[in-house]
Every structure is written in C-alpha cells, then in structure tokens.
C-alpha cells in the first residue's frame, strides 16, 4: 500500500488550513502539502482539501472570488480526472461557486454566525469520505459559519436525493430529520453533498474539529481514516 498524499489549499484568509492539516497528518502519518492560492499546479497527490476560513475576506459572496483563483482552475481540472476533493465550510462554498457542486450557501436563516456542535445523519457510506461510517448513524461535528444555509431548486434537490448524493443531513441526536435539528435553514436539512462521482464532497460542518478526544470528541476522525484506507 503506497502512502496517501494530500494537499491543502491555502488562501490568504484560510484559517482552518492548519486544523485540517493536523487531522490529516494524524490519520496519514505524515504532513499534507500546503499549496498557495496563487500556484497554478498541484503536486502529485491523491486528495485535495479546500479548508474553512474567509478565502479572500469574503466581503463579496462567500467563495465567489476564490472560485476564480489560479489554483482552483487546477483543482477543477484534477477533479474532472477523478481526483477526490473535500471542501469544508468555506471550502464547500468555494466548491459550489466553482461549479464543482450544485446549489449555493446563503446567510443562515437567523442571520447570525453560529458556532456549536450539531448532529448529522450519515446518508450513505458509499464514498471514500464516509466508508468508515455506517449509513443511518448519527455523528457529532461542530459548525462555525454565517452562510451555511444550503439552497438549490427543487429539481436539483430531487436529483441529489435520487442519486444518493446527499452526504449528511442535520438531525436530532436520535437521527430524526426535523426543523428543530436544522441550525441554519438548509433545504431538506442538507449539511453536505457529493458530485456525480461521489469523489467531490462539500460540507459545512468541520470533521477536523472533533477528531481528537481531548477536544471533546472523535466522530470526525473516521472521515480522515477512511480516506487513508480508500486512497492509499
């Protein structure tokens, strides 16, 4: 088994780049490559992570400028060839703005930034990101965003659901999908979605923030462990 190589994209306003690199390193056994936003090429890697933060300040629509950065052109090209891409929080926003994923992340329904642990139901374990989770089980990840309210038109939502491309939904601790469990107003409680190949995942919650017991939980670790298993 060859070791997994991963790259983390660093925009000037990324601020979860180190956090996700720490979680990746814990699972991979070595550090990922940190790739600067102005670079035009990616090193030879098996996985790219677009981390959370504020890319270029996000004073415009979140991720709108980052979607047009030099490195994202390369990320899109590699994704088209099947390379897995994980976008977390601002990374998810950037993936939707880049057209790698459908829909858009709007202001939270309550118009406030929210930082708290939420419960997510794993909708499918059939992806390199979720293979170590069982479909239907509930995990606890933190969210920290002001624009995580997922929106797409009904046709797109139906297609996502029909194709099994909804990755995670906001749920109660018991796994019930209810309005009370929805922290930001997302359509159909959607917290994360895949592209057609299930090799591109975008999600608002932060698996890297609960990947170590001393930080309050380890539910996020299985995502990184699973990627190592799937892609090594």
């Amino acid at each position: 088994m060859k070791p997994l190589h991963a790259a983390v994209i660093v925009f000037p306003g990324s601020n979860c780049d180190r956090d996700v690199a720490t979680a990746l390193e814990a699972s991979m056994g070595h550090a990922p490559a940190m790739v600067w936003h102005r670079d035009t090429e990616l090193p030879a890697v098996d996985l790219v992570v677009v981390p959370g933060g504020f890319s270029y300040g996000d004073y415009l629509r979140c991720g709108a400028m980052a979607a047009h950065s030099p490195i994202m052109r390369e990320v899109k090209a590699r994704a088209a060839k099947g390379m897995p891409v994980l976008g977390i929080c601002n990374g998810f926003q950037i993936l939707t703005e880049s057209g790698l994923l459908p829909g858009v992340l709007m202001r939270n329904a309550e118009l406030k930034f929210i930082c708290e642990d939420v419960h997510l139901r794993i909708e499918t374990s059939d992806s390199p990101f979720t293979r170590k989770y069982n479909a239907g089980t509930v995990v606890r990840f933190p969210i920290a965003h002001a624009e995580g309210n997922y929106f797409a038109d009904a046709t797109t939502l139906d297609r996502l659901e029909g194709d099994g491309r909804v990755a995670f939904r906001y749920a109660t601790p018991e796994g019930e999908i209810s309005p009370e469990a929805n922290p930001n107003g997302s359509a159909r409680n959607i917290a994360g979605i895949y592209d057609e190949t299930r090799r591109v995942l975008g999600l608002m919650p932060h698996p890297e923030r609960l990947a170590e017991a001393v930080l309050g939980g380890t539910d996020g670790k299985a995502m990184f462990d699973g990627l190592v298993e799937a892609l090594s």
């Binding site: 979860c16 956090d19 720490t22 406030k112 930034f113 933190p142 920290a144 923030r209 930080l215 309050g216």
Partner: peptide, 16 residues
C-alpha cells in the same frame, strides 16, 4: 453571545 464567536478554530480549544 458565545455561539456567535468561533471558539474552536485553531483546533486547540479544550474547554469551551
């Protein structure tokens, strides 16, 4: 109040 603050970024918050 504190739910509007990101109190976990940097991945080292042990006591929130």
């Amino acid at each position: 109040i504190w739910q509007q603050y990101d109190h976990m970024v940097m991945g080292d918050t042990v006591q929130r």
